[in-house]
Computed example of a mutant assay.
Amino acid sequence: MAFTWEPITFANLIFCIVIVILSYWTFKKIKNIAILYIGAAFGLFGLSHLAVLLGYESSATILIIARSLAYILVILALIKAAYRN
């Protein structure tokens, strides 16, 4: 396992961290659970980017599972937001 520097992957990780933080702050302000789903999804995306940066890109199955769960969370967030009263 070796650290692999990929600037675009690092930038994606930073964006994911920012979105997670903003999602948490937004949730505290408006109390919409869909916002937490979005934050959790981007947390999973961020973990997959971190795994690639740390040299775990050979663990493709784990990365696919993490990203698939993130997509599911985004879909749930959109559904929750659509049916919010």
Rank of each mutant, 00 (worst) to 15 (best):
L78F: 09
K80V: 05
L63I: 14
E57C: 02
N32A: 13
N85G: 13
L44I: 04
L22N: 08
G39P: 09
I8T: 11
K31I: 07
L76Y: 09
N12M: 07
L53W: 02
L47Y: 13
I33Y: 11
Y24E: 07
V18C: 12
G55T: 06
L78P: 01
Y37T: 00
W25N: 14
S68I: 05
I62C: 04
I17L: 14
R67V: 10
Y71A: 14
F15E: 01
A2E: 14
I38Y: 06
S68R: 03
F42K: 00
R84W: 11
L13K: 02
I79M: 11
K80A: 10
Y24W: 12
F42P: 01
F10R: 00
L54E: 03
T4G: 06
G39F: 02
A66S: 10
S48K: 06
I8F: 13
L54N: 06
T26Q: 15
L44F: 12
S59V: 08
Y71K: 04
V74Q: 05
S23P: 07
L22D: 03
C16L: 04
L76A: 12
R67T: 11
A41Q: 03
H49R: 07
W25Q: 15
T61D: 14
L50F: 15
W25P: 00
F27T: 01
I30W: 11
A40C: 13
I8S: 11
L13H: 01
V52S: 11
V20I: 10
A51Q: 10
I62R: 08
V52W: 09
G43K: 05
A66Y: 03
F27G: 01
L13A: 12
S59M: 15
E6C: 04
V74C: 08
F10W: 06
A40Q: 03
G55R: 09
A2S: 13
W5Q: 07
K80Y: 11
F42Q: 03
W25M: 15
L44G: 04
I17A: 14
V18E: 08
N32V: 11
S48M: 09
L54P: 03
A40F: 15
A60V: 15
K80D: 09
I62E: 09
L36Q: 02
I17T: 13
V18Q: 07
I62G: 09
I38G: 00
F10G: 07
I30R: 11
W5E: 06
G55L: 04
Y83N: 14
I72R: 02
A70V: 02
A82G: 09
S58W: 12
W5L: 14
I79S: 05
G39V: 03
T26V: 08
I75Q: 02
A70Y: 02
A82W: 10
A70W: 02
G46M: 05
I65V: 15
A82R: 13
L69H: 01
I33D: 10
K29V: 09
M1K: 10
I30G: 00
A34S: 15
K28S: 12
L76N: 08
A82L: 14
S48N: 12
F10I: 08
A82P: 00
K31L: 12
A77L: 05
